[in-house]
Simulated scan of single mutants.
Amino acid sequence: MNYLRICYLVILSFLISSPIIAEDTKVSNDNTKFNIYSGMFDFSDNGKRSALIGFQHQNTDLNRDTFLGNLSPVTGFMFTADSAAYLYTGVQAQYSLGALNIIPSFAPGLYSQGDGKDLGHLLEFKSEVQISLDLFQNSQLGLSYNHLSNASLGDKNPGANSYMFNFLKTF
């Protein structure tokens, strides 16, 4: 079993066990956060890089305190200029250092190649880290990096590295 597959299995086991060891569920008045982002899909591949745009929703009413921090579900999608699409759902944590936020996430999803890069499988896993800065009340600007991989489920696993600029708004 390769290193990447082991990492995904460890992360998945943490996510599955989170509700079992959760301390409590927190409820907030601002329960919906939207993230609109744009950037470069697979910037490290000169032949298949493409502009992307995406949207993500987070419901903070469903967050839980775990030994990994406060986790909440995210769901989103992104499209590239080459008609590739990725629909995903997963979890993210948020660690705040004053006005600076560090937001790692993990989300399995479905990938459609369109005219874009062949990632080798319909099921792809997105690992992401985002750094954002509180701007105004309930608004953030951020920069994120993610990696899509099928964990060698397909015949090939080229992966894709992307960066995005994010605008987050809480309602």
Rank of each mutant, 00 (worst) to 15 (best):
F67A: 07
N29G: 09
S13A: 14
I20Q: 07
D24E: 09
F43H: 02
T25H: 08
S18T: 02
M40R: 12
M78E: 09
N63F: 07
T60F: 05
D42L: 08
R5L: 11
L12V: 05
T60V: 06
I21H: 06
Y8T: 06
G76K: 05
G76A: 07
L12M: 12
F34P: 01
L71A: 03
E23N: 07
L68G: 01
A22W: 02
Q58L: 12
V74D: 01
Q58E: 13
K48Q: 12
F67E: 03
I36H: 01
A51G: 11
N31P: 00
T80V: 15
K33E: 14
L12C: 07
A51S: 11
D42C: 03
K26P: 00
L68K: 07
L52W: 13
S44H: 10
S28T: 07
K33N: 07
T80R: 14
L9W: 00
L52N: 11
V27R: 15
D30L: 12
G54N: 04
G47Y: 15
T66P: 02
S13D: 04
Y37F: 15
D30F: 02
F43I: 03
P73L: 10
N31A: 14
L68N: 05
L71S: 01
Q58Y: 04
D45C: 11
D61E: 12
G39I: 02
S18K: 08
G76W: 04
Q56L: 15
Y8C: 10
N35H: 08
L62A: 02
D45Y: 13
K26W: 06
F41S: 10
